[in-house]
Amino acid sequence: MFSAMSSLLPIISEILPMVLPSKTETTPADQLTPILDNEGRPIRETAIAGKCDKMCASVLTTHPHSTSPIHHNSEQDAIIYVVSGTGTLVVKEGFKGELRHHELRPGDFAFVPAWTEHQARNDGDQDFVWVITQSGPRPVGAILTDWGGQEVKTIE
Rank of each mutant, 00 (worst) to 15 (best):
K92L: 09
A47M: 12
H63E: 06
Q119K: 10
H65L: 12
F95V: 05
L104N: 02
G149L: 09
T145M: 03
A120H: 06
T62P: 01
V131A: 07
E98A: 08
G149P: 02
S84Y: 07
S68D: 10
E25W: 05
I15Y: 02
A114T: 08
P21N: 15
D53K: 01
D127G: 02
K96Q: 11
A49I: 00
K51A: 08
D53S: 05
N73Q: 14
R121V: 14
A120K: 00
D127M: 06
W115L: 15
F95N: 04
H65I: 06
K51D: 06
M1L: 10
I132S: 03
T24G: 11
S135L: 01
G40K: 13
T154A: 04
T133S: 11
V112F: 12
K23N: 14
I143F: 11
F109R: 13
A29F: 15
L60K: 01
M55T: 08
M18P: 00
P34C: 13
Q126L: 10
P69R: 09
I48A: 07
P64F: 12
E39C: 09
V82A: 09
R105D: 09
P106M: 12
S13L: 05
G124K: 02
A49Y: 01
E93C: 00
V91G: 00
V152Q: 09
V112H: 07
H118W: 08
C56P: 02
P17Q: 08
T88H: 04
A78P: 01
V152G: 01
I48P: 03
I15M: 07
T33V: 14
I143V: 13
A142D: 02
K153M: 11
R41T: 03
D146M: 03
T145E: 13
T145F: 03
